[in-house]
Structure formats: C-alpha cells, structure tokens
Amino acid sequence: MLGGLAAVLAFSAQPAWAGSRIKDIVDFENVRPNQLIGYGLVVGLAGTGDRMRNSPFTEESMQAMLERMGVNIRQAQMKTQNVAAVSITATMPAFSRAGSAIDVTVAALGDATSLQGGTLIATSLRGLDGNTYAVAQGQVAVSGFKAQGAAANISRGVSTSARIAGGAIVEREVPYALRSANTLKLALRNPDFTTAQRVADVINKNFPGSAQMLDPATVQLTPTSAVPGGVVDLLTRVENLPVDVDQPARVVVNEAAGTVVMNADVRVSPVAIAQGGLTISVAESPVASQPAPLSSGTTQVLPRTQINVDDGGGKSLAMLEGASLKSLVGGLNALGVSPRDLITILQALKTAGALQAEIEVQ
C-alpha cells in the first residue's frame, strides 16, 4: 500500500504545473458568480412532507399561496403531509443573460422525511441586495432514499435535499462594465510573489507596458495603443499565455483518510528517523476450578491473563542535507512505515525543524 503511495508522490515531483495558462491560475476583477436564495413549497409528496403541527411556517405558506389563487382556507384545519417548506439556493454565473437556465438546489426546512417525487412551485430567487434575479420551478431529483419498517430501516444519501437541473430562469442580469474600464486586475488564486511577477513579465513580453505587479496576489492590466480593443481585447489575448507557476513547499495531511500529498519542493535537513512499532497484546483465557468430589465447594472461574510485548525491532534512517521528496519517501519505504505512520513522522520532522515545508492538516 505504501509502495503505491510512493509512486504517486514520486510522480507528483515532476513539474506538472509548468506552462499553466493565465486563465487557469487567476480570477478576473468583478467577473464572478452571484449567490441566490429563495423560500418555497414542494408539493406532491407521498405522505413524506412536513407535519403541520410541527412546522407552522409550512401551513402559513400554504395558506398564503392558496389565497393568492383565490382560495380562502384560513378557518380550516390542515392535516396534509404532502407539502414541504424548502430553501432554494442557486449560483448565477457571471454574464448570465435573461432567459438562460441555471441549476438550483432544494433542501427541506421542516420535518419532511423525503422530497422524492415532489414538485417545486414557482419561487423567486433573490440576491443579497433584495432584488429578484431568477424564478425557480420544476420536478425535484433526489439522489438518496430512506426505507423503514416496524423493526428495521435503511437509508442512503440524503433524501431531504434535491436538485433541479436548469430549474431556474434568469429574469434580471447583473451589469458588467468591462468595455468601459480603463484597467483590470488579475487576482492569483494562490498568491505568490514569484508567480505574480512571472505573470506580469510574460504579459509585458507580448504586450509591452500592459502589466504591473501590485502585490503577490494582484497583477494590473492597462491597455496600450497596441491593443485598440481596450481591456476586453487585452484580456482575450493574455488569458491563454503560458506561465510557470511557483509555489511554496507544502505537505497536506488528511489524518482521517491517512492521505499525504507533498509537492516537489519539499526538502529535509540532516535528521535521523527511528521507527519501531510497539505492539502490546493482552489475552484473557479464564479457567474453571472444580471442587473436590463430595465436598461442599462450588465451581469457580479463575482469571488467566497473557501479555505479550513486541517492540518491532525498530529501524532507523539518516537523511542527508537537502534530501528531496523522492529520497524521503524512498527511505521511509525502506523502514516499512504505513501511511498513518508517515503522517506522524512528518509532523515530528516539522516539530524538530528538519522539514522545510508547511504542513496543512485537514
């Protein structure tokens, strides 16, 4: 198992990020999606909706909806469980135009047990500014299920959350004034001084005087007379330029999954590593003690415990100055460490000051 891990890590030591396009490593100023949210009702559920007694907001919403349609049921007592109150969320991509469709996610707010087979009634989706940008409606698609009987139940996934593909229609556009802008900022997704300077250099090499690094996360574009189309024209010309991306040495550790990912810049200072698995096993084998014949004694169970200790014959590894990722993983493989032991060793190396990299624990 560790051998496979070593192969993956050794492969990652290659410069896989060399020559990345600018559009793949930056975000463009003011070009972003917008989050939308709404509240509505899902109807048509087969008895798996909200119970009116426990979810009064569902009853109020249903009464308000029927009143808008000319049906007055304020004095009636509702007992249906075929309706569920839900929250609706969606992400409207940048430059979405009126009439385009976007996906929505629906999640139960009350005590509904499943949204399977339900239909979302037309609901407005608003942005944080309070304006309506889209209207959602349609048949919900649930990926999970839940079944139960008198003595057992089974579930898979989440049946109270669903999606509607293309379930919202954009009604209002978000204006983007790129054409009239005099400058545009590129925001690096992974801020780095070296990478930001390389982005500016490669742009200026092709379009002299068009780029300036402001900080490790920002490069400013300014169109020159050589680009008559302004910011938009310059942006279309530079977004596909290749850049060698630099990054700090980093080790990402997921303790729950036992996964370790390291980039090629990880280095190890002179250090000795000793790894030995201490295994202590405790076994209980009680025995029965029988009384002598014709005696008045009773049978008793006497405890018997066996304890075995195995120190694993600990092995050691010495690393030379500036040892690379490949040397580190190869040496740890020679010790026969497991992925989880590798995590512990890397954390100990960082504490000892021998691991020249950041450790990010997830």
Rank of each mutant, 00 (worst) to 15 (best):
A10G: 10
A10H: 08
A13F: 04
Q14F: 15
G19V: 00
R21D: 10
I22F: 00
I25Y: 04
V26R: 02
E29W: 02
R32V: 14
Q35Y: 14
Q35E: 13
I37R: 12
I37S: 14
G38S: 03
Y39H: 08
A46N: 15
G47R: 04
T48N: 00
G49E: 01
D50G: 05
D50I: 05
D50A: 06
R51S: 15
E60P: 01
S61Q: 08
S61V: 05
S61M: 13
G70S: 03
G70V: 02
V83M: 03
V86W: 03
T91I: 13
M92F: 08
A94M: 09
F95M: 11
S96D: 14
R97W: 07
A98I: 15
S100I: 12
G110K: 02
A112S: 10
T113A: 11
G117C: 05
G118N: 10
G118A: 12
T119S: 13
T123I: 02
S124R: 14
S124F: 08
G127Q: 01
T132W: 04
A134P: 10
A134H: 10
A134L: 14
A136T: 01
G144T: 03
F145R: 08
A151P: 13
A152I: 02
S155I: 08
S161I: 12
A162D: 06
I164Q: 02
A165Q: 09
G166K: 02
V170Y: 09
S180V: 11
S180G: 13
N182V: 09
L184C: 05
L188P: 04
D192G: 01
T195N: 02
Q197D: 05
Q197P: 02
R198Y: 00
A200L: 07
D201K: 05
I203A: 06
I203V: 10
N204A: 03
K205C: 03
P208E: 06
A211G: 02
T218G: 04
P228M: 04
V231G: 08
D233V: 08
L234G: 03
R237F: 08
V238M: 02
N240H: 12
P248M: 08
V251W: 00
V252R: 11
A257T: 11
D265I: 09
I273R: 07
G277R: 14
I280H: 07
S295F: 00
Q300N: 13
R304I: 08
G314N: 13
M319V: 09
M319C: 07
A323K: 03
L328K: 05
V329P: 09
G330D: 12
G330C: 07
A348E: 15
K350L: 06
A352Q: 13
E358P: 07
I359S: 04
V361S: 14
